[in-house]
Nucleic acid binder design. Sequence first.
RNA 1: GCCCUCAUAGCUCAGAGGAUAGAGCGUUGCCCUCCGGAGGCAGAGGCGCAGGUUCGAGUCCUGCUGAGGGCACCA
Length: 569
Amino acid sequence: MNLLPIQIAALIRDALLAAQAAGDLPPFALPETIPVQRSNKPELADYACPVAMPLAKTAGLKPLDIAQAIARHVPPADFLESVTAAPPGFLNIRLSNRWVMHQIDTIIAAGENVFALDLGTGQKAQVECVSANPTGPITVGRTRGGVIGSTMANVLAALGYQVEMEYYFNNAGRQMQLLGHSLQARYRQELGLPAALPEEGYQGDYLISMAKDLVAKYDKALANEPWERFKQEAETAVFAWIERSLARIGIRFDHFFNENSVYENGKVWEVLKTLEDNGYAYRAVNREGATPDEIAKTPANAKEAIWFRSTRLGDKEDRVIVKASGEPTYVLPDIAYHMNKLDRGFSYLINVLGADHIVEAQSVARGLQAVGYDPKPVHVLLHQFVTLFEGGKQKRMSTRKGEYVTLDELVEDVGPDVVRYFILARSADAHLEFDLDLARQQANENPVYYIQNAHVRCAGIFRQTTERGLTDEGADLSLLGDREQAFVRKMLEMLEMLVQTHEEVAPHKLAFFAHDLARMFHPMYDEVRVLHGDVPEDVAKARLRLYRAAQIVFKRLLTLMGMSAPDVM
RNA sequence: GCCCUCAUAGCUCAGAGGAUAGAGCGUUGCCCUCCGGAGGCAGAGGCGCAGGUUCGAGUCCUGCUGAGGGCACCA
């Protein structure tokens, strides 16, 4: 399938040139791009093009006159019904009804891969998301990144990319050490041995149940094991839990990348060397350009750290990359990690990150530049926070204190499809207010069911027609009416929507499109019956074929969003 | 204090610099001889404030106000 706006823009460009050649328009330079957008007046046009407006000044003509001149010279095309000028200077483009109706057959022929493109064919793409360190259950906040990321991965796959989902984690930091000590304490408590949770330790009940599991498995054998052993046990158990929880809402990873591996293979130090060679690293107690205040606060015996001269690449201050202790900060391995990604041949990368990681994202981009890599393939999708409301109050969450609502709890409350849709149905830029009470009680009246019901209703029709022996073979699609045509036109927008989702890295567009389409479906379903005494058989056949296409499209949409497409609800 | 994101209907949110700003929930009033009423039809309800750029601004720029986040030799 081809993108209509691009084809239409090409036709209008041809028309402009033809009009100039014919002397209907004076010579002037053509705009670089011809804007073609979906018309907001569907009864008038399918697409609109305002190109005449900005040309008015350079051409010295009224916008409407220009539009009319263009309209006269648009070459014919099989999908085109008409191009007309409308005040103040729009070009209204109408698709041919015949062509539109024929797309029903095209959709059916494409089947479950309908609206696939080959934009990314032969290219490897990667989506990194969630990337929570294995210190506790997956929370709703991290889930947002996972839903966004997995949906983008689905869209990229539909556009032809070969896509991998990746999870980046660190199991070596102070938090993991704390986790090990916490589990050790819980284990000893289970055995009745003296033990207290470390100060600032992990207080969640899950460590108690993990401790019970350890006792069941090893009895007292681990009593004198060091904390490292418990860290390892906790990590394994937590990861298994996280993976299981995420899989419940359709988030699966192809690869887990351990930050530690860039230490093991020495890449971290290679990055440092390259930065030094390129003049991007220096040793100092304070950063270059440190304020007098910062310097005054520095202890007299402070040791030198190594700084990344990121200000040379537009940063507002340089960043520490190796602490005075000799240990790198997260920036260095992060750069090494992204070099690794690019080295693996991914030409399109998405990093889904919480809004608090913006500085990290910028440092990585600058770091890649500083080591001579092109950061352009890396697309950062920042999402705002999720706040949970329960009983009209915001729930503050802290994994360490054991205060959180887990993904598991949420899925049990409202079901996986509701979780995915609620998260997907807002742009990543917007704070997500997840009202738990509402989500729970709304289970009967929410957009998820409205959309899925469109698929259910299609399935219902086919259950009936199969029983009665009605098929859509030999359907004459010209028997379909205006309402059906409007619906098909809306379905055809899906291709553009997918491309936009990709270009703008904005997966919420799927959620809104699906709802819009459902909103056109249900009134049509109400009016355009297949099995009714008054409907002649040839009309019924045509309608049945339309609903077959509709079912395919709804299923495709739901699948891309990672939701189920039920036949009955 | 500095930086980032955001501010659109009572609430939660959409909105490629283009025509009369759209949904859901809530609310008001209607509709079941008909493929699943988890439905349909109709109504009320509006871009935080002040400037600027533009033929044209909810959209871009500046300032103000308000909300969230970031400003670690944590990740």
